[in-house]
Amino acid sequence: MRADVDSWPTGRLLSVAARMVEARFDDFLAGLDLTHAGLITLHHLADGPLPQRELARRSHVTDQTMSRTIERLARTAHVARTMDPADRRRTQVAITPLGTAALAAARDEERRSDRFFGAVDDYDHFRDQLIRLIETAADR
């Protein structure tokens, strides 16, 4: 396989690697009773509670999509919802201890496991390069 992969264009390498890592990571997250969307939501809640609408904005999804994500996270006890005391029409969402533990486990697995990015020589450099690639592509 190595000889075949060596001949691939870089775009194909990136696409295949992304699909393979995503599929493996989805399997890992399922073991934590999480989805990728749920993990993104927990990431945004790590620094404190947020209104549902703000979570949707930060996650770049609709309010309706975020509502479904939060509903699932609440069912699995990764988040807790409360009414905002300043505005009872708004829902505040907070990460629970179970959600914090799941987020930490996912971050650790992503960084250290040789099934994911632990397989690269320099995780931080690789991550910086991906961010740069995304920012450059987004500017066009």
Rank of each mutant, 00 (worst) to 15 (best):
M1R: 05
R2V: 10
D4E: 10
V5F: 09
V5W: 07
V5L: 13
V5S: 05
W8D: 04
P9V: 13
T10R: 09
T10S: 11
L13I: 13
L14K: 01
V16A: 00
M20C: 12
V21W: 03
E22A: 13
A23Q: 15
A23W: 06
R24Q: 10
F25S: 00
G31N: 08
T35C: 07
H36R: 15
H36L: 15
G38S: 05
L39A: 05
I40G: 11
T41K: 07
H43C: 11
H44V: 02
A46L: 09
D47Q: 15
G48T: 04
G48Y: 05
P49G: 10
P49R: 11
R57K: 14
R58G: 03
S59H: 11
S59M: 07
S59T: 15
T62Y: 03
T62C: 11
D63P: 05
D63Y: 15
D63I: 10
T65N: 09
T65M: 09
T65S: 13
T65E: 12
M66W: 05
S67A: 13
R68D: 14
E71W: 13
E71P: 02
R72C: 01
R72W: 07
L73C: 09
L73S: 00
T76L: 02
H78R: 07
H78S: 10
V79I: 03
V79N: 01
R81Y: 00
T82L: 07
M83D: 15
M83A: 15
D84K: 14
P85F: 15
R88P: 12
R89H: 12
R90D: 02
T96P: 01
P97D: 15
P97L: 12
L98W: 02
G99I: 02
T100W: 08
A101S: 11
L103A: 07
A104T: 15
A104F: 06
A106K: 00
R107D: 08
R107V: 01
E109F: 00
E110W: 00
R111W: 06
R112Q: 08
R112W: 03
S113I: 00
D114C: 04
D114R: 10
R115S: 04
F116E: 05
F117C: 01
F117W: 05
V120N: 08
V120R: 04
D121M: 06
Y123D: 01
H125N: 12
H125I: 11
R127C: 02
L130C: 10
L130M: 14
I131T: 11
L133D: 13
I134K: 07
I134C: 12
T136Q: 14
D139K: 11
R140N: 06
R140D: 04
